[in-house]
Design a protein around this nucleic acid. Structure first.
Length: 253
DNA sequence: ATGGCGCATGGAATGCGA
């Protein structure tokens, strides 16, 4: 199984890039974040014509997540159960015996802000819910835009802001790994300064001034099956790109 | 320098992302 995650920053604008990328890379599963559209506007027909079924959870203007797959998608669940939240940031579904959890984690804006507190509450609720999910599903993937660079090497050395790299955020990420989940990217040797997001401004991509904040985390059974994990920077070089690049993992199931 | 760029809303200017 080839599984990927991509924050597309508006599926309406990025649909041509997504269709091109699907055709070129043929993933079995693609998780999307920041759809920025209501469910009625989801381009299900275009994706189906490309060979992909979809489960999605969207809203106007902000957020929105989807799971695309070439094989049937079952047992779809939306939001974090028990966590009251109007923001559409989580969807879970089963594809070919793998439980796929796709999340658009809160940004946090600034350490100590109200949005930062929301980010930490969201992460805590996710972690507690995942504890039960991992007990139910041996093969589980937690993927999406985490908005956390887990280690210093996951942020450009000149990143001076605290957000995305602060101790509370990294502790929340560590709590996910303490459930038994492992960062697929770090199972393999990787080039230094490999990132998944670059600001649109300041020529950030050209200067590789980025962060690695998009992740694929694997349950222990899937860790054994993982043979590769890479970040594809090609779509970031296109006209009108998303500010995020896709992350791809290969699982030998 | 808190801006830059890009997207959404709404039909100009503002909020937000990371």
């Amino acid at each position: 199984m080839k599984i990927a995650t991509w924050n597309v920053n508006s599926l309406k604008v990025r649909l041509p890039h997504v269709l091109d990328w699907l055709a070129a890379n043929q993933p079995d599963v693609l998780c999307l974040q920041e759809l920025k559209l209501e469910d009625a506007a989801f381009p299900a027909a275009e994706l189906e014509a490309a060979g992909y079924q979809a489960a999605f959870s969207g809203q106007k203007t902000y957020n929105g997540v989807a799971v695309l797959a070439r094989t049937p998608i079952t047992d779809v669940s939306r939001d974090i159960p028990g966590f009251e939240d109007p923001q559409k940031r989580l969807i879970a579904a089963t594809v070919a015996g793998v439980r796929v959890v796709c999340g658009y984690f809160p940004n946090g804006q600034q350490v100590g802000s109200e949005k930062f507190e929301y980010k930490l509450r969201w992460l805590l609720a996710l972690t507690e819910w995942l504890r039960g999910e991992l007990a139910k599903h041996e093969r589980l993937v937690l993927t999406g835009d985490f908005n956390i660079a887990p280690e210093d090497r996951d942020a450009h050395p000149d990143w001076k802001d605290d957000i995305h790299v602060s101790p509370p955020e990294r502790a929340a990420f560590a709590a996910l790994t303490e459930l038994g989940l492992v960062d697929a990217f770090r199972l393999f040797p990787q080039p230094d300064k490999t990132f998944s997001w670059w600001d649109y401004r300041m020529g950030a991509f050209r200067r590789n001034f980025g962060l690695r904040i998009d992740h694929i985390l694997l349950s222990p059974a899937l860790r054994e099956a993982c043979t590769a994990c890479t970040i594809d920077t090609a779509p970031r070089k296109l006209e009108r790109p998303s500010d995020h690049a896709p992350v791809v993992a290969e699982l030998k199931l």
